[in-house]
């Protein structure tokens, strides 16, 4: 007997401009199949201890008898026992597996959280545990709308402004950040045992793709510092800020992804922001983001720190 349904996910949902469905009969963009997956892929372009990949196909081995597979950008195969830790499983489904689907669909998944500020889509890029979600939440508390948490998919295409559909719009707000925010700006979906809140902004975002207005690359350091990045500086940093960057090459999309990163670097203004760890610096960073957006829109130099 194998698992037949992911109870902690809805029957259908939308993320990254795609419809996902666990229902047997569905015309969703991405369907789920709860059935046997192979132990290994035939002729993978990359073999790893716990995963194989080849163009259009990706297989993750969570345990000797637990497997997830993403095929053709359209199908997620779940082959796990019913007693699996479903919360852990769902993290793999909406994380690595969905990222593989995005690459297979020629989308560029950035490791980013994003908000809409006064109609402009702004993305915060950083490795894990640097405060992407916390900064997004701080912006939402000041009137922004949550747009994506952890992964932001960017459309690829010649001659078009890089644009993104809403991602997973629930923000994970750490307990320490939550206590520093105005709670009326959020709808709390649930609270986890460590005090982390899973929240939506109120009101939620519309389902339309928006052009990328600005990127902010976040770092933790000993002081507050902001720097406008050149397109080349941005390009070289963006490659390391893809969501699961090691997937793009074995999936056969590295060349296209790099070209798309070039389009983003050439067309989207970007800043590097270093801030001290902790919640105290979040309001200042949120203010820098707003001022940078405003001054760029009015063709003024990057704001200095006060």
């Amino acid at each position: 007997m194998r698992l037949q349904y992911l109870r902690s996910l809805p029957a259908t949902w939308r993320a990254h401009g795609l419809s996902f469905s666990q229902l047997v009969e569905s015309d969703a963009d991405v369907r789920f199949a709860f059935r046997a997956a192979p132990l290994r892929l035939d002729v993978p372009t990359r073999e790893h201890r716990d995963r194989d990949a080849r163009p259009g196909d990706w297989l993750l081995r969570l345990a000797p008898d637990q497997r997830l597979r993403a095929t053709g950008g359209r199908l997620i195969t779940v082959d796990v026992a019913p007693d699996v830790d479903e919360r852990e499983l769902v993290r793999w489904v909406i994380g690595a597996t969905t990222t593989a689907i995005l690459y297979q669909r020629r989308l560029v998944p950035l490791h980013a959280s994003a908000v809409v500020i006064d109609g402009s889509l702004v993305a915060f890029l950083a490795p894990s545990n640097v405060g992407k979600s916390s900064l997004a939440a701080a912006c939402v508390a000041e009137g922004a709308v949550a747009f994506a948490d952890d992964t932001l998919a960017v459309h690829r295409g010649d001659g078009v402004v890089p644009a993104s559909p809403p991602g997973w719009t629930q923000l994970r707000v750490p307990a320490a950040t939550w206590t520093s925010l105005d709670p009326t700006a959020f709808r709390v979906l649930r609270e986890e045992s460590d005090g982390t809140r899973i929240v939506h902004s109120a009101p939620p975002v519309a389902d339309d793709a928006l052009p990328l207005a600005a990127l902010f690359l976040l770092q933790i350091g000993d002081r507050l510092e902001v720097e406008r990045l050149t397109p080349f500086d941005l390009l070289t940093r963006l490659r390391g800020l893809l969501s699961r960057p090691s997937l793009s090459r074995p999936l056969g999309v590295e060349t296209g992804v790099f070209s798309s990163l070039g389009q983003i670097a050439a067309q989207v203004p970007a800043w590097r922001i270093m801030r001290p760890a902790g919640e105290a610096s979040l309001p200042a960073v949120s203010a820098i983001v707003r001022r940078s957006l405003h001054m760029h829109a009015h063709d003024a130099p990057t704001p200095g720190l006060q």
Partner: peptide, 12 residues
């Protein structure tokens, strides 16, 4: 399959 991109004033 050589990754490259055009940043407008330079190719990388």
């Amino acid at each position: 399959d050589q990754p490259w991109c055009d940043l407008g004033n330079e190719v990388v």
